[in-house]
């Protein structure tokens, strides 16, 4: 890791610090530490380690450089071969490919094509491999996007609106709703949790904060109206454990999972924050605290007859009503 203390880590840091500090005004230790995910002290140690030599050794590279160390700044007057960062390593090029492919896949077609063109040029001119890629990276070995198909570019529109702080007109369909809602929202943050994307936004219609599931946003248009994110907004307030969740009041729900799936549910429960207990027949009872009772109804149904909401009774009634409609 660039953050670590091995020789490779130190070299990697120096190959960034030297060119950054050889710019006209040098570089502040704070900026360097921030970019490298390390501390100013460690950067100083790296510089000391590479420049300090016993007098009886023939001079090497340090004989050709001048490094000025000020209390909070480093300046390199002549970096002797280290004036620029080095090109992207094959793994860094792979990351760039992932980044561009990820945004291209979630983009409008026009942007997607431009990004793939940029990727081709970047592999050739920014990468360190002889012919702009040694072939080891094709076919792509990694895929980190976790994006559903989005031919309309809804995700990108919401991201751009959140980034530019522009209000967004959306069409939203709640689960089991009879119609779609048109709303104007101020997207403050885009959250990914448990494989789903959410938009945390101020809703102009409801005049309050709301969390929208991105898959239920059926259309989105960025407007020109700008907004400010309140200083006290913190996306972490909308997360509990690994769930996206927020409510002034929550409900405790007990769900029993059959012995057949108990082991797999326990894996999740152990990893998460839920409390659980095992029953004599091998089934598992988990206590969930939920803001939206409807979430539990949906959650239980995804397990079919292998999950049963034990309480509260009104949620059991909700399930009865749903399965009744389906012919149960």
């Amino acid at each position: 890791m660039a953050e670590g203390s091995g020789t490779a880590d130190r070299l990697e840091r120096l190959l960034y610090v030297l060119p950054a500090a050889s710019r006209k005004q040098g570089a502040s230790l704070e900026e360097l530490a921030d970019a490298l995910g390390t501390t100013g002290k460690r950067i100083m140690q790296d510089l000391e380690q590479v420049t300090a030599r016993a007098y009886y050794h023939p001079g090497g590279w340090p004989d050709d450089v001048s490094i000025l160390i000020e209390p909070d700044r480093v300046r390199v007057m002549h970096a002797a071969g280290f004036e620029r960062p080095i090109r992207l390593s094959p793994r860094e090029t792979l990351c760039l490919a992932l980044a561009l492919r990820g945004t291209a896949a979630a983009s409008h077609v026009r942007h997607g094509a431009r990004r793939m063109a940029l990727l081709q040029r970047a592999e050739k001119y920014l990468g360190s491999s002889p012919d702009g890629g040694d072939g080891a990276w094709t076919p792509d070995p990694l895929h980190a996007g976790d994006h559903a198909p989005d031919p309309e570019g809804i995700r990108e529109t919401l991201l751009a609106a959140a980034r530019d702080r522009h209000a967004c007109a959306i069409v939203y369909a709640k689960a089991s709703a009879d119609d779609m809602d048109a709303r104007v929202i101020h997207p403050y943050a885009i959250l990914h949790a448990e494989g789903a994307w959410y938009v945390v936004a101020w809703c102009a219609v409801k005049e309050g904060m709301r969390v929208f599931r991105m898959d239920r946003i059926l259309a989105a248009d960025e407007t020109d109206a700008s907004f400010d994110v309140p200083a006290d907004f913190d996306a972490a307030d909308y997360v509990s454990g690994n769930h996206v969740y927020r409510a002034p009041e929550d409900v405790e729900v007990r769900v029993r999972y059959s012995p057949r799936i108990a082991r797999w549910v326990r894996e999740r429960a152990e990893a998460g924050v839920a409390e659980w207990e095992e029953e004599g027949d091998g089934s598992l009872v988990v206590r969930h605290r939920v803001a939206d009772p409807h979430w539990v109804v949906n959650h239980a149904l995804t397990y079919g007859p292998d999950a049963e909401i034990l309480e509260p009774e009104d949620l059991r009634a909700m399930v009865r009503e749903v399965v009744g409609r389906m012919g149960g």
Binding site: A2, L88, S89, R91, E92, C95, L96, L126, L142, A144
Partner: peptide, 17 residues
């Protein structure tokens, strides 16, 4: 858990240089 997070950060640094 992204296994090349470190490389992604260093690519970012270089590109932003």
């Amino acid at each position: 858990g992204f296994p090349l997070a470190r490389e992604a950060r260093s690519a970012f640094r270089k590109l932003a240089f």
